[in-house]
Amino acid sequence: MEAFADFWATYSTLIFTVGIHALLALSLWLTLSCGLLSLANAAFMGIGAYTAALLTLHLHWPFPMVLVAGALAPAAVALVIGAPTLRLSGVYLAMATLAFGEVTRILVLNLEITGGPEGLNGIPLLTTWWHILLILAAAGFALARLRRSRMGRAFEAIREDEVAARMMGIDVEGHKLAAFTLGAILAGLAGALNAHSTFFISPREYGFENAVDILTMTILGGISSLIGPVLGATILTLLPELLRFLHAYRLAVNGLILIGVVLFLPTGLWDSRRLRQLVGAWRTRREGKP
């Protein structure tokens, strides 16, 4: 038991981070599942984190309410900016969401209430491991249900071919907005949990680099199933810890992984179809059939 306590004292922060990153990767998975490449999810996380932290610090709301508010605030923002932004497609959408992220970061950096560049300090540590686990499990369950629902299939149809989806009578704009907003809710939740597990937040944690990190995790894991993003988040969070001996060069490994995946594993690490084929091939060989 003591060994476990030691382990927990050393690694709890890391484990928290894995969970929060997994939640973020799932939030991007949701937007990507509708074919939208959004670089706004880091900003949504930031909005959630700041909303939650301010409510706790100034109004002393109970934690569950804080979490709900942290999820809803970015969702409201996503609804407002989504309607005009989501008319853009492909790279234009990526650029617009990038610009939105930058505006958000600079605003947070300069506003009085957000504490400027120093950020917010002394946020009580209310997040526990089971909060993260529960929310992650609930999100995973909800997304798994969503995939098989009418809405999930509509997302997939839009991703594959927008014109064809429209011809089938799918409300393309409405579904895109839904995917974008639901993604913002998950990102906001991750932000609220993060703010209450790190004691301190600053604008630096929600910039372009973080948007890229979330993207890398999701792409690395692969978007063909829900396991992919979680796997990607876990690997990319733990890897820098394992690579400490590389010092300044350790981020280069992340970059190389991203390039390698794009070049050699376009569907990501966890591709359910490829896995099924592998398992199938292995079984056939073992049973000695042709």
Binding site: T216, A252, G255, L258, V262
Partner: peptide
């Protein structure tokens, strides 16, 4: 289109870290 863009993000990370 988005795939090469993501790859260049990777290249940036490598070069910055280097």
């Amino acid at each position: 289109h988005l795939i090469p863009m993501i790859a260049t993000i990777g290249a940036t990370t490598v070069l910055t870290s280097a």
